[in-house]
Design a protein around this nucleic acid. Structure first.
Length: 476
DNA sequence: CTATGGCACGGATT
DNA sequence: AATCCGTGCCATAG
């Protein structure tokens, strides 16, 4: 049943132009947020495209064109109007079926939804803090800066660009930026994570003791820091690897390279930049609390099922005003193309997730240690698509797990995470420091066949020092 | 002699 | 076709 449906779908999509292929590819790579932007742009510029009037406002139950706000009661209609693509994966077997989420009653409400009336956005929040210290003219400049922040609270455009635009001197802007950086999410507005850290450090210095070398570490060893390369870092700063590790720990515990994100992986914070609800492309949740619960998979696809070619436009194409006939035809063609490609994208994504959720069920429910090593290639084979298709579909997408963590989808294909988890476990419980060779043997006993050399690599990735140095730090 | 890091090769990924 | 990642081999440090 389900099978034949897939066949028909695939068959009907066979006749593809090269343009079609190219566009499908590019769409596949986009995350839901990026896709939404693209479609918005397309909608604005192409009169042949339209949104079907299918949305329901949860409050007044009015039928609306798809939009973010209900114009009548001004309540967000997002999640309901989007016709999320949902399917359920029952406990173990491979017979997951899907249905396109009907927009009836309150079907797909997500747990923990917080559409609290006032979600003040980040720029406003900061502007309010610093406004008293600004002259009137400077407020405009500050606003310009603040609206150029990304979701992480980092400045996306060079200050000089703003200076040019408003014809003001850099020094003036730098002053304003400095004010912003010292406002509440500390370091916000910095052009790079590195600068954000430095600003935070500066702020902390006023109230408490900071390690003397922290600034130097950030300045010189940013890259080493993020790679947990403590030994190299130590060399750079002329301190031991152990001291370097302590320093790094202090930095990661007390500073945050992305000012607007509260904590990595944890639930979203109230002072969030954009009102984009779970900023994931796929949301997986449990139907019930039990471990054997079926999984509900929701693929966020902006305007899925609602975007279509305007039938009126198609109908009146022959009546195009003189000289614009070609343009109209062009618009029509690209609209048709976009809609088709969108369907194709969704279809691919659904099939991908259907497989993935079954294969990685244990990981999704129980955590890192249960991640199975799956290759994109193997999945491509079972889905009968080119491996690069999987690659594109997976890249730059994120998944919200039932436990509330957001992970990049590529983690589902991490070949080493489960081994690394086991390794961490071993080192955490060791009585005295084990050498890489010993660890490799222990891992082998647990069924993880890895080379000694690889243990060394994983150890580094996890930021664990070599046995010799672990011995030293235990003594201390 | 043992424990590790560096470099290079082959398969997987992009 | 370019790049990344797990490994094997070898040099070096203890």
């Amino acid at each position: 049943m389900r099978q034949s449906q897939g066949q028909i779908l695939r068959h009907s999509m066979r006749p593809m132009t090269t343009a079609h292929l190219a566009q499908t590819m590019t769409l596949l790579e986009l995350s839901s947020v990026e896709l939404e932007q693209k479609i918005d742009a397309e909608l604005a510029s192409n009169p042949a495209l339209e949104l079907q009037e299918v949305a329901h406002c949860p409050q007044c139950h009015r039928r609306l064109p798809l939009s973010k706000m209900c114009p009548v009661c001004s309540r967000p209609t997002n999640s309901l109007s989007e016709q999320p693509i949902i399917f359920v994966s029952p406990r173990t077997d491979f017979t997951s079926y899907d249905y396109r989420g009907a927009t009836s009653s309150s079907g797909g409400e997500l747990p923990g939804e917080e559409w609290a009336a006032e979600t003040e956005d980040l720029p406003t929040y900061i502007l309010r803090q610093i406004a008293p210290e600004l002259k009137k003219d400077d407020r405009l400049l500050a606003a310009h800066i603040l609206t150029s922040l990304d979701d992480d609270g980092l400045l996306t455009i060079p200050l000089s660009e703003i200076a040019l635009y408003h014809r003001v001197r850099m020094a003036r802007l730098e002053n304003i930026l400095s004010l912003i950086q010292h406002a509440d999410p500390p370091g916000v507005g910095s052009p790079t994570p590195q600068q954000a850290l430095l600003v935070q450090l500066e702020i902390l210095e006023e109230t408490c003791d900071v390690p003397p070398l922290a600034a130097a570490a950030i300045l010189k060893g940013m890259e080493l820091l993020s790679r947990h390369a403590y030994m190299e870092l130590g060399k750079q700063l002329k301190i031991s690897a152990i001291e370097a590790q302590d320093l790094a720990r202090w930095i990661s515990e007390n500073l945050n390279p992305y000012p607007a994100r509260a904590h990595w992986g944890s639930v979203r914070h109230s002072t969030h930049a954009e009102p984009n609800y779970p900023s994931a492309d796929v949301v997986i949740s449990r139907l019930t609390g039990e471990l054997s619960s079926p999984l509900v998979v929701e693929i966020i696809s902006p305007y899925a099922g609602s975007l279509r070619v305007n039938p009126l436009f198609r109908q009146h194409i022959s009546e195009a005003p003189d000289g614009t006939a070609e343009k109209w035809q062009n618009d029509l063609d690209s609209a048709v193309l976009l809609v088709k490609c969108l369907q194709q994208r969704d279809h691919t994504l659904v099939r991908l997730m259907q497989q993935l959720v079954v294969i990685q069920r244990q990981y999704i429910l129980k955590g890192d240690a249960f991640l199975l090593p799956v290759t994109r290639a193997s999945l491509a084979e079972t889905l009968e698509v080119h491996e690069s298709t999987i690659s594109r579909a997976v890249s730059s997408k994120s998944v919200l797990l039932p436990n509330g963590r957001i992970i990049p989808m590529s983690r589902m294909f991490d070949r080493s995470l489960h081994v690394r988890t086991a390794l961490r476990q071993i080192v955490a419980t060791e009585r005295r420091p084990l050498s890489d060779t010993q660890i490799a043997r222990l891992l082998g006993e647990q069924g993880y066949d890895v080379a000694r050399r690889t243990v060394a690599k994983y150890r580094n990735m996890e930021g664990i020092l070599p046995a010799r140095l672990r011995a030293a730090s235990m003594r201390a």
